[in-house]
């Protein structure tokens, strides 16, 4: 059975625990500071260009300036655009703490002006990656950089990872049949280059580096923003003790996560793996019991 610690719980060194020798490189990741994103989509384009990702269709979606809609098999970086008028409508009183329209309570304190949030989303390269846990072929693997990558020559398109991901990142590509997502530019990392999207980002909204250092930098940045009165600034995915053990790619947001299309409190499905098998065992046992019992009668 699974080594419990690897599926859930504190995990300081996912690469090491996946079998890489102790001298493997430090864990790499992204800190995406959405407070300085200008929505130029250079990251989206650079990713496609470098990774040879095909176009994702030519539909006007009408979601502000977002015409790719979401991350998916053919969109590995996705820039969200959120137009928010001011003043925000009064929150619906629900009598339940924290259950109102989240941004209305916490996202916009003191905000007087219309605002336009932009945020570049990407695979989170989770410490406990739901996609990786469930992949039955080994196509998904943990790299020496602690990132999570699909091997297209192995993937048989079983589709399990698609539902294993609590963020809705990985997806099977139509017509191709395999699952695709951000590789955190594994090839570039191996050559000592930074990922294409981070390289293209003009404002350093996407910062690439050693995860430990990024986490520190992010904490400083939040503090700085709070001092400047931007109290709604918060980190998402930076906490190594959250439901997925922290993200390799985490974010600074200016509103509640769900406003950007993130789940507010994701948990890796394998957290409950023992319970699940236990219940399955009980159900199986029940079946055996019943199936035996039925032969006890006559006829």
């Amino acid at each position: 059975m699974a080594d419990h610690d690897r599926v859930y719980g504190p995990e300081a060194d996912p690469a090491g625990d996946s079998g890489y020798a102790a001298d493997h490189p430090p864990r790499k990741g992204f800190f995406t500071d959405t407070s300085i994103c200008i929505g130029c989509k250079a990251c989206e384009v650079a990713c496609k260009q470098w990774n040879g990702v095909p176009d994702d269709g030519f539909d006007l979606l009408g979601l502000s300036y977002d015409n790719t809609g979401a991350l998916g098999a053919s969109t590995w970086r996705h820039v969200a655009f959120i137009e928010q008028p001011a003043p925000p409508p009064a929150p619906v009183e629900l009598g339940m703490p924290g259950m109102g329209p989240p941004g209305a309570e916490t996202g916009a304190e003191g905000r007087e002006q219309f605002r336009w949030l932009m945020s570049s989303d990407v695979c989170k390269h989770c410490t406990h990656a739901g996609c990786l846990d469930v992949c039955p072929t080994g196509a998904l693997f943990r790299t020496e950089f602690g990132t999570v990558v699909v091997q297209p020559d192995i993937c048989n398109g079983c589709g399990y990872c698609v539902s294993g991901c609590p963020y809705g990142v990985i997806q099977r590509r139509e017509g191709d049949g395999r699952a695709w997502k951000c590789t955190l530019c594994y090839d570039r990392l191996k050559d000592g280059l930074e990922p294409a999207c981070a390289h293209a980002c003009p404002t350093k909204s996407i910062q690439f580096g050693d995860l430990d250092e990024l986490r520190e930098r992010a904490a400083d940045r939040v503090e700085q923003l709070h001092e400047q009165g931007v109290t709604e600034a918060r980190l998402y995915g930076a906490d190594p003790d959250d439901g997925v053990g922290g993200n390799g790619a985490f974010f600074l947001l200016l509103d509640e996560p769900e406003v950007y299309g993130f789940p507010p409190d994701p948990v890796v499905p394998a957290r409950d793996i023992r319970r699940m098998w236990t219940f399955a065992g009980m159900a199986a046992a029940a079946l055996v019991t019943v199936a035996s019992a039925v032969f006890g009668g006559r006829g």
Binding site: L63, G72, I82, V92, P101, V162, Y167, V259, Y260, P263
Partner: peptide, 20 residues
């Protein structure tokens, strides 16, 4: 659930539709 109790990105889905 009363309407507009939760917020989301244009009401778009967060998770991917299962491939199955």
């Amino acid at each position: 659930v009363p309407p507009a109790e939760f917020r989301s990105y244009y009401g778009r889905q967060i998770l991917k539709t299962p491939a199955w």
